[in-house]
């Protein structure tokens, strides 16, 4: 139990280090953030398709609103653990990290959270331009929506990070695990609401897509924020279930993987 205590005590310091690191590489981080332009590219296509009218239940303003929120949620829930773990396992850089009293995953989680303020700073001019272009998209959510939205984004953040942990740990068995993660991300793009809002998917696959983890990791919080989900509490519960499932998988794989890593003698 003292292990947990050490991790909690170290958290504030780790967060400070993480933030300082991001500030040190601010230009690089900003460029990384700006590369996630896909929501804007998709917005251009959808809004040209709607062409002043509506598409399904979406007007042009709805599209702007949807992809603006997607852009933000995608940024605040993104991580780089899968690349880092893959690299560290392949090159053996993980070994010295394991000698520390802190779990390297915990370290990465703190860095990821530490990057959040910078992400928001870089995003704000883009959002400002979108709101300047379409002032009517700015809506003030109700207190309940705000609260549920924050919880949903938090769950999506944890889920996305855990999924990266799982795919990163696959590197213990299979070195090209980053390629597999790309498959996951294509699924998130298509079935999770990244390039197409859930309601505009072919209606036969919508019920299935709604319970899959891809939606919980990205589309769900967007819908909660926009008050566009029939039952927000059910959405949150489903997200929590997926978090629990991936957390179990990650915990299991970490134990098994480390044993294998040691066995190779790297």
């Amino acid at each position: 139990m003292s292990g947990l205590l050490i991790h909690l005590r170290a958290a504030p310091t780790l967060l400070r280090i993480g933030f300082a690191e991001m500030v040190a590489y601010r230009a690089e981080v900003a460029v990384w953030i700006l590369t996630a332009t896909l929501p804007l590219v998709m917005l251009a296509l959808w809004s040209a398709a709607a062409d002043g009218g509506t598409l399904g239940s979406f007007s042009q303003d709805d599209f702007v609103r949807y992809f603006a929120v997607i852009l933000v949620v995608r940024q605040v829930t993104s991580a780089w653990l899968v690349w880092e773990l893959n690299y560290n396992v392949r090159t053996g850089a993980l070994s010295p990290m394991l000698l520390r009293p802190l779990n390297p995953l915990w370290w990465n989680l703190a860095e990821t959270v530490g990057a959040l303020p910078l992400r928001i700073i870089v995003l704000s001019p883009i959002l400002a331009v979108l709101i300047w272009w379409k002032p009517q998209i700015a809506l003030l959510p109700s207190a309940a929506t705000f609260f549920l939205g924050c919880v949903s984004v938090f769950l999506a953040f944890v889920l996305a990070w855990l999924v990266q942990a799982v795919f990163g740990m696959l590197a213990f068995w299979y070195e090209q695990s980053v390629g597999l993660y790309n498959l996951w991300f294509v699924a998130v793009a298509l079935l999770g609401g990244y390039v197409i809002p859930m309601d505009l998917l072919p209606s036969s696959i919508v019920p299935l897509a709604r319970v899959l983890p891809f939606h919980s990791a990205l589309g769900a919080p967007v819908e909660v924020w926009l008050d566009a989900t029939p039952d927000p509490c059910r959405t949150l519960a489903l997200q929590a279930v997926w978090v629990a499932v991936t957390a179990t998988a990650a915990w299991f794989m970490w134990g098994r993987g480390l044993r294998r890593y040691g066995a190779v003698g790297a």
Partner: peptide, 12 residues
Amino acid sequence: PLALVYNHTERI
């Protein structure tokens, strides 16, 4: 994604 968008409209 292109096919999915064109699912809803003839011309963009």
